[in-house]
């Protein structure tokens, strides 16, 4: 098991290196970021000085090498716009994204799995059809549109909920979270809800498909022949059997929501990492883009590792070195 984890971590290092090269080359191709943030009336001299100060006059390989050396010291560089080190900058925006992403994926799963199991268990009932209609809606209507409708309905017409920005936060172990204050929770509700729709739809489809397939197997017939209640059949046998794809998708969705909740964060001006990356792309804030995408690769590798470890606890056939 330990060997497995070490092997995965080594893989992670390779993936992150390749990722950093790709991003670096891509960002380099976009062009010189200096022109974006120097005032239009800056002299040629100041321009050359600034370029030299950031090392943008060096060849690509040299810039990359410097980046790697600094990275080895734990330094991702400084943001061109914020003028602060990139790593603390990204970490300061992470809690905001973390709370809406986690809320969305958790609610989507905890609600979607039971609904999906029901829809797979009674596929012809009116309720199951309603659930499936809901999931098609969640899949096909674009996030930005749902976000605008949510803002118009609850923020503008009804005026029940704030439509943008983050509310009051509380420090938990030095990390600011907003879901612990009433005001913060109110601010969180709409963006989190907006992210939830797609997750919910996905989990419904996944659980329904798994349940339909498993209900036809001899395992279920055998369990019923033993006199098990339908509740025990669904809650114990089916749930455990469909849990592996659900954990997989849970991990993938959590990763992609953490990394790319861009649309929702932009619409609700939520100060998270998604908004940070989109802002740094528009302002060509090179160090932030590079560091962010490398960290995203790290995030996905970590989540995949956790998912793989979870598989082993869910499916005994994947455990090695244990025979009875």
């Amino acid at each position: 098991m330990l060997g497995f984890v070490i092997q995965r971590l080594l893989q992670a290092v390779v993936v992150m290196l390749v990722m950093s090269m790709l991003v670096f080359a891509g960002v380099y191709a976009i062009g010189n970021p200096i022109d974006v943030f120097l005032p239009a009336n800056a002299t040629q001299e100041i321009r050359a000085q600034t370029i030299a100060a950031y090392g943008f006059d060096r060849p690509l390989w040299e810039q990359y090498w410097r980046f790697l050396v600094r990275l080895a010291h734990g330094d991702f560089g400084r943001s061109l716009i914020f003028g602060m080190p990139v790593l603390p900058l990204i970490l300061s925006k992470l809690p905001a994204t973390l709370e809406i992403a986690l809320a969305a994926v958790l609610v989507g799963t905890l609600l979607g799995v039971p609904l999906g199991i029901y829809a797979g268990y009674r596929p012809n009932s009116p309720l199951a059809r309603l659930i499936m209609a809901l999931s098609i809606f969640g899949f096909s209507v674009p996030t930005f549109w749902i976000g605008l409708v949510l803002i118009l309905t609850f923020g503008v017409y009804l005026g029940w909920l704030p439509a943008g920005s983050r509310g009051d936060t509380v420090l938990v172990f030095g990390v600011p979270f907003s879901f612990l204050t009433w005001n913060g929770l109110q601010h969180m509700l709409l963006p989190a809800l907006n992210l939830t729709f797609f997750k919910l739809a996905m989990m419904i489809r996944l659980s329904r498909a798994g349940t339909r397939e498993i209900m036809l197997t001899d395992t279920i017939k055998f369990a019923r022949a033993a006199g098990l209640s339908e509740r025990a059949v669904l809650g114990r046998h089916v749930l455990k059997l469909i849990s592996i794809p659900i954990v997989t998708v849970f991990g993938l969705e959590l990763g992609s929501t953490l990394a790319f909740a861009v649309v929702t964060e932009t619409i609700f001006s939520w100060p998270g990492v998604g908004k940070l990356i989109i802002d740094s792309i528009t302002s060509l804030d090179r160090p932030v883009m590079v560091a962010y995408l490398v960290l995203v690769a790290f995030l996905f590798i970590t989540i995949n590792l956790l998912v793989d470890l979870t598989y082993a606890t869910l499916d005994p056939r994947l455990r090695r070195g244990r025979t009875a």
């Binding site: 197997t217 001899d218 395992t219 017939k221 055998f222 369990a223 022949a225 033993a226 114990r236 046998h237 455990k240 059997l241 869910l314 499916d315 005994p316 056939r317």
Partner: peptide, 15 residues
């Protein structure tokens, strides 16, 4: 009670 043909198919592999 009932016993089925193929125990590989009837017992739940993950319990």
């Amino acid at each position: 009670a009932m016993v089925f043909q193929d125990p590989a198919m009837t017992l739940n592999p993950v319990l």
